[in-house]
Measured scan of single mutants.
Amino acid sequence: LQLFIKTLTGKTFTVEMEPSDTIENLKAKIQDKEGIPPDQQRLIFAGKQLEDGRTLSDYNIQKESTLHLVL
């Protein structure tokens, strides 16, 4: 599923993930694309901070959802 990642600077980029992927996987993918170390990434969806060990489906993140990346 394609997700939109929006940064505080207003930049938006996309990543391609599976619902079974963990937040950790997502942070690694963001590191590949943007060079931001996972330990500096905080991801927010629907007002909640996402925890590394959980999956996208745990948070009911669907295709074309927008996640906010806070550094």
Rank of each mutant, 00 (worst) to 15 (best):
L67V: 11
E51G: 04
I5F: 03
L56C: 03
V70E: 10
V15Y: 03
T55W: 04
Q40P: 02
T22D: 03
S20V: 09
K63I: 08
L71Y: 12
I36S: 05
P38C: 04
G10W: 03
K11I: 10
D52C: 03
K6F: 07
D58T: 05
E51T: 07
T12L: 12
T66A: 04
L71E: 08
E64G: 14
L71C: 04
H68L: 13
D52I: 06
F45T: 02
E16D: 11
Q49N: 11
Q40W: 08
L69I: 06
H68Q: 09
L56Q: 00
G35K: 10
N25P: 01
L71S: 09
H68R: 07
E16R: 09
S57I: 09
F45G: 02
Y59M: 04
F45M: 06
T12Y: 08
Q41L: 05
M17G: 07
N25W: 10
F45C: 03
L71K: 10
D21H: 07
F4K: 11
T7P: 07
K11R: 11
I23T: 05
T12A: 07
S65K: 04
L67P: 03
N60V: 05
L50T: 03
K33W: 07
Q31C: 04
Q62I: 13
L3G: 01
L43R: 00
K6V: 13
A46I: 06
Q62F: 13
T12C: 05
K29H: 07
N25L: 14
L3W: 01
E51V: 07
I5M: 02
K33Q: 13
L3E: 00
E51A: 07
E64W: 12
T22Y: 15
Q31Y: 12
I61S: 02
L8E: 14
E16C: 04
I5G: 00
R42W: 10
F13K: 01
L26G: 00
A46E: 11
T22V: 06
S65W: 04
L43W: 03
E34V: 15
L1Q: 05
I61R: 02
I36E: 02
M17Q: 03
I5N: 00
L56K: 00
Q49R: 09
G35A: 06
T55N: 06
Q2D: 08
V15T: 03
D39R: 15
D21S: 10
L50V: 05
Q62K: 14
E51H: 12
T14K: 11
V15P: 00
T22F: 11
G47N: 07
